[in-house]
């Protein structure tokens, strides 16, 4: 089984980091991962995205062209990637900055007011962690009822624990920034409650 996830937003919103944290958390749980960024001549404020594949078998193509889950942090990302989500997939969008609802009806859609929640927590910079928490909570959901059709990929792969995400965060921040762990963890927990 594998899940393909696309993280997209403005450069500076931490979308590449979200993908890396997911990879490190999945590695911590002995899953296979690949992380592929868009790379171009953009600078801060330009488009940024990365495709992550998480699998319990060796990964074939690391390219994410039809994501099982799209995690979209700004309006241009929604406009660009909504149509690419696999049928039966899921879309999480940052409703603080995105002023329209997604149109797709064949996918699961979750609104996450990332920036508002982050501001309430007292640190606007953890908006991406709010979203990562929401993503993590989403992947813990399982289909309800018997015979409800094919299980979408994002539900089929065993979910990663929040503890592993915190582990990944700790490994990434290092000793110097360890004091930032609690606020980031709170942000993930608040995001999880949006799902």
């Amino acid at each position: 089984m594998e899940t393909q996830v696309l993280f997209a937003g403005f450069g500076g919103q931490g979308v590449l980091l979200m993908g890396q944290l997911l990879c490190k958390a999945a590695m911590h749980e002995d899953l296979e991962v690949s992380w592929m960024p868009s790379y171009g001549p953009e600078m801060r404020g330009g488009e940024a995205n990365c495709g992550v594949v998480v699998a319990d078998e060796p990964i074939g193509s690391p390219l994410v062209t039809e994501p099982d889950v799209a995690v979209l942090m700004n309006r241009p990302s929604l406009d660009k990637f909504e149509s690419t989500v696999a049928p039966g997939g899921a879309l999480l969008y940052n409703s603080s900055l995105i002023d329209r609802a997604p149109k797709r009806e064949d996918i699961r859609v979750v609104a996450v007011p990332c920036n508002e929640i982050a501001s309430e927590l007292g640190n606007a910079r953890v908006a991406n962690m709010v979203m990562l928490g929401a993503y993590n909570a989403l992947t813990k959901q399982r289909p309800g009822g018997a015979g409800s059709g094919a299980v979408p990929n994002w539900m089929a792969l065993r979910p990663i624990s929040l503890e592993s995400l915190v582990y990944a965060l700790r490994a990434t921040l290092g000793k110097e920034k360890e004091r930032l762990i609690p606020i980031n963890q709170k942000a993930m927990e608040a995001g999880a409650r949006c799902v």
Partner: peptide, 10 residues
């Protein structure tokens, strides 16, 4: 190619 250069894997 550019993908090998830019992608991350364990």
């Amino acid at each position: 190619d550019g993908m090998i250069g830019q992608m991350m894997e364990p």
